[in-house]
Structures are given as structure tokens and as C-alpha cells.
Nucleic acid binder design. Structure first.
Length: 264
DNA sequence: ATGCCGCTCCAAGAGCGA
């Protein structure tokens, strides 16, 4: 997002263009009282947000039903006051929006904080994955999971977004049973969600895949399509990230008994 | 092989992002 107020024209233009049902925003860089609530509601969205002066900040938007907030802030550390996690239920689907710490420089206290945050996330998501309802965890994870997710992997080996400990932490999440929606449907494609502003990174497609959508098994069973909407990345005064999207289908109807002739 | 850009605070330059 890189500032919800600075990017508000881009956000509103994209909402009108793409007409997403549910949106998770990260890096609002806005205090709670300066969030542009009315501009978003005017486009027909319900919205909840967790702001913070200058840094961080996350929000959930929905135009398909009221958001019932279930949590703000990741549990497990009362000292952590950063606005990096918000969670709510919409139409029987649980949505978690997160903004994982960047962690640079590595090593250092900021990197340690990132690893601790990952551990707290693992603890919390371990309880969510077991829900019978679909659960979607969306956000800026600040990790490229594999070499395929980085335009120049060798340059990033020691970076806090690509360090072995961070990739391992992300893998431990997947090992809980979460599905990385983009990779489930596009296992081998070069797909990025972030491009630096300079050196023509977007034009050269020199990017990173750091924004992810994780699905619990009931959500994964309904996954229809997934991709990155690169259109707004080319706009003026835009974010350095592009929206990652998925399409979720209707709940699977319980199959009736097959016709007799199909039974051996 | 690097925040080179761009946001926030608040009115200059520091801190942050990745």
C-alpha cells in the first residue's frame, strides 16, 4: 500500500476497476483516525482497520456482507503494539489480513522480532486451520518462499526476506496444511507481487513474490482461480506492490449417490 | 549490487520499506 492516504486515488480507481468482493490492505501508514473510511464506504464497502501513526496498519474491506471482527493484533506478545494483524468473518468465511515484519537488517533485533512474529503466527494459525469454515490468510509476508519467487536469488541470500530461517518459517506454515493459492494453480510460472520503484524494475519484471494467500483445506477445496493484477502497478503515484487475488467458488454440494450403473 | 524512490511525521530531515 505504502500509505493509504497517499495512495487513495489509486486504491479507489482499482476498487472501481476490479470490483473485488473482499480486500486486505497492508502498510496503511495512517493513524486510526485518519483512515479514509468514508471514501471507501462510498464505494459500497464495509471496512475495519487497525491503524498506527507513521508505520504498519492493516484493513479489511467487504462489499458482500458485513465484517464481523474477530481479532486485531496477533496474540502472544503483550509488548508488541504494532498494527500488523486483523481478522474478521464475512459470510461464513474467516479472513485474516497480516503485514509481517520486514526484518532487515539481518542479523539484529529487527530480524529477531520477525522470527518471533512468525512463531506467534504459527501458533495462532494452528488453531485456525482446523476450522470447518473456509479460512483465508492474506497479506505481505515479507518472504520469498523459493528461488522461483525472486528475480535474482543470489543477491538476496542473506536478506531478511530470503534468509534460510525465514523460508523455513514460511514452510512450517505450509506444513500445517495451508495451501499457497498462487503456487497451487501456477506451480512453475514466474509470478511477482512487488517491484522496486527504481531502475525500471517493473518494466524489466525484476520483482519479488512476497504477498501470499494461504487457504485452509475447506477454502482450498473451493479455489477456482488465482493471479496478480499488475495493472495498477503501472499507474502514477502507485504502490510498489500489486494486488494478489483469488476466486473462491460456491460451497461444494454434497454429491448424491452415483447411478447404479457406475457401481462396479 | 546500493533504498537510486517515496511514504510518514510535520515543515527538515530522519526513519522506514524490501
Amino acid at each position: 500500500m505504502n500509505g493509504v492516504n497517499g495512495r487513495l486515488p489509486v486504491l479507489l480507481r482499482w476498487l472501481e476497476l476490479a470490483e473485488p468482493d473482499i480486500v486486505c490492505l497492508q502498510e496503511l501508514k495512517s493513524p486510526q483516525e485518519k483512515f479514509p473510511e468514508s471514501a471507501i464506504r462510498d464505494l459500497g464497502y464495509d471496512v475495519i482497520w487497525h491503524g498506527q501513526s507513521r508505520w504498519n496498519g492493516v484493513a479489511l474491506l467487504s462489499r458482500v456482507g458485513e465484517i464481523h471482527e474477530t481479532r486485531r493484533g496477533l496474540p502472544g506478545d503483550p509488548e508488541d503494539l504494532q498494527s500488523r494483524y486483523i481478522e474478521g468473518a464475512v459470510n461464513g468465511v474467516l479472513i485474516a489480513g497480516l503485514y509481517l515484519p520486514n526484518g532487515n537488517p539481518r542479523p539484529g533485533p529487527r530480524f529477531d522480532f520477525k522470527l518471533r512474529w512468525f512463531e506467534r503466527l504459527q501458533t495462532h494459525l494452528a488453531s485456525l486451520i482446523r476450522l470447518e469454515a473456509p479460512v483465508i490468510v492474506a497479506g505481505d509476508f515479507n518472504v520469498m518462499p523459493t528461488d522461483r519467487d525472486v528475480y535474482a536469488p543470489e543477491r538476496w541470500r542473506d536478506d531478511a526476506l530470503f534468509a534460510p530461517e525465514v523460508k523455513a518459517a514460511y514452510q512450517r506454515l505450509l506444513d500445517q496444511g495451508w495451501t499457497d493459492a498462487i503456487r497451487r494453480l501456477h506451480p512453475d510460472d514466474v509470478i511477482y507481487t512487488f517491484w522496486k520503484y527504481w531502475r525500471g524494475a517493473f518494466e524489466r519484471n525484476a520483482g519479488l513474490r512476497i504477498d501470499h494467500l494461504l487457504l485452509n483445506p475447506p477454502a482450498a477445496a473451493r479455489l477456482v482461480a488465482a493471479g496478480v493484477d499488475t495493472r495498477p502497478r503501472a499507474w502514477e503515484k502507485t504502490s510498489d506492490h500489486a494486488p494478489v487475488w483469488i476466486e473462491i467458488g460456491e460451497p461444494k454440494v454434497r454429491r448424491r449417490k452415483p447411478p447404479v450403473q457406475e457401481l462396479g
